[in-house]
């Protein structure tokens, strides 16, 4: 079994209420979208899936191995992580940051070139990372994660809002890159705030409600429905057919015409 399995995990930051309580979830290889209101615990759950947050109870297993117990170098060969906001302290250039994805792996220049080309930043490779815009920095981080997983068929990519700073064209491009990883046999789990993107692009969906409860998970078409969405967000949703595919639109936010 190649997927990620959560067995009754409870996640908590020191001396506070649990963010997630006894959550069980199985993610098969494929593209999974995680959706839920602000503060529902998506980021914490993703950190646990990436082995970066040790559960207080339960375990997250990858091929039967608890991810938070793996040695960092070993885990890096199987799981890559894209945080919501990346930060780099020193004045490294873009290429060096992407190459850090190969920290625990043999460095291959063509892998790094391909990853940079994938996010359309090959021409900025020699510039300091910190001189880039937030959206470009986010793409550098995605390129680093993809470089890290290059050659690891079945590797896991955990991404926290990878589209948050992307314009529509780059959002589509990034989703294409994630899809490419899935087609090579990988597993992607990404928190997304755009329900339509989640519905159209993902194979599977995970819906969390505030308080960190798992509302439902399963095939994306069965998860991102007006009924479930209303239950999680407390506003009505319309499922609309458009020439580009189905769209899930919230009702509350529209201006009266």
């Amino acid at each position: 079994m190649n997927g990620l399995v959560c067995e009754g995990i409870t996640l908590r930051y020191e001396r506070s209420e649990p963010v997630i309580s006894s959550l069980s979830l199985t993610l098969e290889p494929g593209l999974w979208a995680m959706v839920g209101p602000n503060g529902a615990g998506k980021s914490t759950l993703l950190r646990a899936l990436a082995g970066l947050h040790a559960p207080e109870a339960g375990r997250v297993l990858l091929k039967g191995e608890p991810v938070h117990r793996m040695a960092a170098r070993h885990r890096a060969t199987r799981i890559a992580y894209v945080p919501q906001r990346s930060s780099v302290w020193a004045g490294f250039d873009v290429r060096t940051i992407v190459a850090m994805g190969r920290h625990a792996l043999p460095r291959r220049d063509e892998t790094i070139e391909r990853a940079l080309d994938g996010v359309a930043l090959l021409d900025r490779a020699e510039e300091p990372y910190r001189s880039l815009s937030v959206g470009q920095q986010q793409r550098v981080t995605i390129a680093r994660a993809l470089a890290q997983l290059d050659g690891s068929e079945g590797g896991v990519l955990v991404a926290d809002e990878p589209l948050s700073a992307q314009d529509p064209a780059f959002a589509a491009r990034v989703m294409g890159l994630l899809r490419g990883h899935v087609e090579r046999g990988g597993l992607v789990v990404a928190a997304l705030h755009d329900c339509t993107t989640a519905l159209r692009c993902a194979d599977g969906g995970v819906l969390l409600s505030s308080g960190g409860t798992l509302v439902t998970s399963g095939p994306a078409v069965d998860t991102f429905t007006p009924g479930w969405m209303e239950r999680v967000f407390g506003v009505g949703f319309d499922l609309v057919r458009t020439p580009g595919g189905p769209a899930l639109l919230p009702r509350g936010a529209t201006m009266p015409l």
């Binding site: 992580y81 930060s87 302290w89 020193a90 940051i97 625990a104 792996l105 890290q148």
Partner: peptide
């Protein structure tokens, strides 16, 4: 030089 989570995630 990366954030804690990122540094750990690259190994």
């Amino acid at each position: 030089a990366l954030s804690d989570d990122e540094a750990r995630s690259v190994g």
